[in-house]
Design a protein around this nucleic acid. Structure first.
Lengths: 360, 360
DNA sequence: TCAGCTTATGACACCGATGTCATGACACCG
DNA sequence: CGGTGTCATGACATCGGTGTCATAAGCTGA
């Protein structure tokens, strides 16, 4: 591969002059510049980042570690999409800043992370982003002091800057919207108890009930997901069955995520109940492959992955340029409710009174 | 950040000796080695890849460009997962080879690809993989001659080595399996005509019919997808309606992909038809979020993305080590049929006669 | 006309590793 | 005892750019 010396020789100038043409950091005569450009094109010259970096000590690289690190029993294929969207948001911002994103995939093995970090440090990345596939707590090895890091969709005990989804507010907004639509008996089929989001969303659910002075009924809140997915459909069926037999049964099922809602559709229909005319269903995630494809389309809450990626990248860029190292509070990003045909609107006029604005 | 000179000074040896400890390429005295290791740990020394690369001229980097380059009207969120699985397969092999994967995301803008390639060449990647989100034809800018490239899930006119899914065989295997299960009137709701896979899969569908000496009936093959997704549900409804009113209606609907099958579930059920007892449904992709979550779970064909990624990476490694540059034929990778509860098995004893083995 | 300035260019050292070659200290062997 | 080989180590050049400083040419103004 051609070097700056080859170009200099071909253009009959010194290497330094070629460097000046490349970087435009000092005046160069028009004829000289043309000769250099011609020589570069002729030789197919592309400058070496490694050499440039040695001198300047600035790599222009940002490292990104994407987890796919899941609980051992979890289905690998279910995950992944959130991370992809986070990565796209991150890429947008990093690309704009002129830096290059290096992505490493741990392939689900948590113990590979230290090795990936080591590789990044060898490349002298200017900062690191760690992305988790779902809202969780993580523990990462310590980094050299001069490499800033941001956590996306996860947090740790060490106070590393983090960007998280606003699960509490998202669930609150959805339930508030359901109440405005005339629903008062709102069932909630939650995700597993050990998931961070479950606790937050339950709190949001109660917030909305309390705000509307509706009673909280524990028999309307049940877990619909198992760690071992084998018997899951049965558990879900039983939970739904119990709730439908209550003296005052629910008029809507909120589901822990859109995948759960998809299962609930199947179960309700096999019981002969029509969605939404006889029973309403809502999800969480705005997993569009499901939410928009279901018939009828699913009301859900958007998990603002792309926006979170954007925010995480912005925070990292800020840290790299040295500002605001003292601001350690996590950034919380909320997503809007996506209202679709799976929920009946019993009092449409109420809705106009409700103001929910969530846009990034 | 500490350099090899700092370590040398701290350990009272020459930089070259430190280098020898790092690389183990020449004998070093035990006491010296211990002193050097202690100094490295003390200083938190991590070698600089840039400097190493300058001498050796081998970067140890592989570039990966992931498309998310979709037709303008296509839903961005629907895509992505296939690429992620391809990337995981690629990562497995690249990681084993001791090289580092650099991933760049074009974020859906085709015109950014040349820039990404330029960036990779600046980093002196030893090879490039280009990943597309669905089986398609692409056209990429020319690379420097000494950078080998492999296309994954796509192909071009220039004869660049490619790895592709075996759509024809996949659809054939599924239909053959349906026939073995006693189905003779097999409807096929295809994807858009302009997609490469559609033509191949239709051919596979006809192959299987011909093999079983069943007649091909054009009224059983209809397109179920539109370029503009707005009226799609209506088109699908009409297509299904027409087929169900045929003198001899189909007993099973094959769908172009699992997402389409999800829609078909909704439509069939809203017509009061029970799946699978009254009508069977099959998909394509083995998009597990859908296929395993649907009720009943969906029979489908696996698109072997991970295996394709593995194959692509292996081919690239081969090219880099200089072997087999003459082998230009695309690698075709087939995936197995996933038989689940959405199709009735009318003649279970037949199935044992059918031998379909597809595993990677 | 010449000091003083700007413009255009080159010589040289340097960034942090590693390859090449040289050197000194031993051990072994005839 | 001296020649030869192995081991352990260091001096120095080198990879491909860029920062620093020097230099030569051209222009201005008193």
């Amino acid at each position: 591969m051609a070097t700056i010396y080859d170009v200099a020789k071909a253009a009959n100038v010194s290497p330094k002059t070629v460097s000046r043409v490349l970087n435009g950091d000092a005046p160069v005569g028009d004829k000289t510049r043309d000769a250099v450009n011609a020589a570069m094109a002729e030789l197919g010259y592309v400058p070496s980042n490694a050499a440039r970096m040695m001198r300047s000590n600035r790599s222009g690289l940002i490292g990104l570690i994407t987890g796919a690190i899941s609980a051992p029993t979890e289905n690998v294929q279910v995950a992944g999409l959130p991370e992809l969207m986070l990565v796209q948001g991150i890429q947008q911002i990093i690309g704009l800043s002129g830096k290059t994103l290096m992505i490493a995939d741990s392939g689900g093995q948590r113990d590979r992370v230290p090795h990936l970090i080591e590789t990044f440090v060898r490349h002298r990345v200017e900062g690191l982003i760690y992305v988790a596939e779902y809202h969780q707590k993580v523990q990462l090895p310590r980094l050299p002091d001069d490499v800033p890091m941001v956590l996306a969709n996860c947090f740790d005990d060490a106070g590393t800057p983090a960007v998280l989804p606003d699960d509490r507010r998202g669930q609150h907004d959805l339930v508030a919207r359901l109440i405005a639509a005339g629903h008062e008996r709102i069932a909630y089929l939650t995700l597993r108890e050990d998931i961070v989001a479950t606790g937050l969303r339950k709190a949001g659910y109660r917030d909305a009930l309390a705000e509307a002075h509706l009673p909280y009924d524990a028999s309307l809140v049940q877990c619909g997901e198992l760690i071992n997915p084998d018997g899951e459909t049965q558990v879900l069926w039983d939970a739904i069955d119990r709730m439908l037999r209550l003296p005052v049964p629910p008029t809507v099922f909120c589901c822990g995520n859109d995948r759960l809602a998809l299962k609930v559709y199947g179960i309700l229909r096999s019981r002969g109940l029509l969605v939404p005319s006889e029973i309403s269903v809502a999800g969480y995630d705005n997993y569009r492959v499901i939410a928009e494809t279901l018939y009828p389309p699913l009301t859900t809450v958007e998990l603002p992955y792309t926006a979170m990626g954007v925010r995480a990248a912005q925070r990292l860029i800020g840290l790299i340029s040295g500002e605001g190292r003292e601001d350690l509070a996590p950034s919380i990003v909320a997503g809007p409710v996506q209202w679709r045909g799976s929920v009946t609107d019993r009092r449409p006029n109420n809705v106009s009174q409700l103001k929910i604005v969530r846009e990034e």
